[in-house]
Design a protein around this nucleic acid. Structure first.
Lengths: 71, 71
DNA sequence: ATATAATGTCAAATATATATTACATCATGT
DNA sequence: ACATGATGTAATATATATTTGACATTATAT
């Protein structure tokens, strides 16, 4: 999986730390970090929660243009 | 979780059976059925694969307007 | 130089997404 | 009435998302 730099950027733009976003989304800091690092593949509900916490849409934060999918 | 009728409708619009979509997405028919029935919470990668198979975006098929999130 | 916050990462445990097999129901066609 | 395809659902098994706790690193500030 590839890194999610759009998420990292959106978080930076809101001046939120990984921990702050994790708290807002109700998950652990490691989960946010792992998503940004592309180490795993969040569920759609978590993506939706993250989008709302950052005021972004799914397409803005999680759409990928082909690249690497393997499930 | 609530049913995903947008997915069901998009599939119907393409005249694809659950099995056909499952094959296109590389998952089991039961997985597609469970997503449509709202029985679980797919990963973002699977959502992206489904979107591409149906020619839709994440926001079109998976955005939810508040309602029920519990993760 | 030292303290502190933020981040990256690892290992072990738990929760849950997904697969597989199987069966019941509903619709459509013959 | 029977066959067949599509769908809904259940049980068990496996893969993997997520948690927890801990430690190392990097940046920033004092």
């Amino acid at each position: 999986m590839s890194k999610n730099l759009k998420l990292k950027a959106a978080r930076a733009e809101r001046d939120m730390t990984q921990k702050a976003l994790a708290d807002a989304a109700g998950v652990s800091r490691q989960t946010i970090n792992a998503i940004e690092q592309g180490e795993y593949n969040p569920t759609i509900k978590l993506c939706l929660t993250i989008c709302r916490a950052l005021g972004r849409t799914l397409d803005e934060l999680f759409w990928e243009d082909e690249e690497n999918e393997s499930l």
